[in-house]
Amino acid sequence: MANQDEQAGRAGSGIRAQQDFVAGLFLAVIALFAIWQASDMPLGTLRAMGPGMLPRAVAVMVGLGGVILMVSSFLEEGPALERFHWRGPLFILGGILLFALTIRTAGLIVAGPLSMIFGSLASDEFNWKEAAIFAVALTAICIVLFKFALGLPIPVIAFM
């Protein structure tokens, strides 16, 4: 880790640990959002806490942690921010969303291949034919396994 740390120093901005800075910012934003969400809930007293007391207390602590992280990122050397990629999150999460959208309306027979083929696009080694054959075969296995062998109430064909 040591040599990585040395390389990470950013000249100019004053931020020495880019990853920690962004991490702190991330926490602070979440904390602010939670405080805003909890702001209309009654606090109550320590003797009889209301629903808003702990959410606000925890949110403040998260925010505090975020601020400390941000401050320390100016003081201590740390790793640079890793690059974010879009391909993995887009296709994997997109595939899951497609599954969620089609499972009730069309059933597993559509949701299975659709989500798997779309998800397969996340890999650099994507190959249409292979992905399609694999997705269809696996969907058939899933239907036999989950619907017939285990009797789960999962819709197989919903659009007919």
Binding site: S115, I117, G119, S120, N127
Partner: peptide, 9 residues
């Protein structure tokens, strides 16, 4: 590349 779609489903 074959394993992860299976995990996904």
């Amino acid at each position: 590349r074959l394993m992860f779609p299976a995990i996904l489903i």
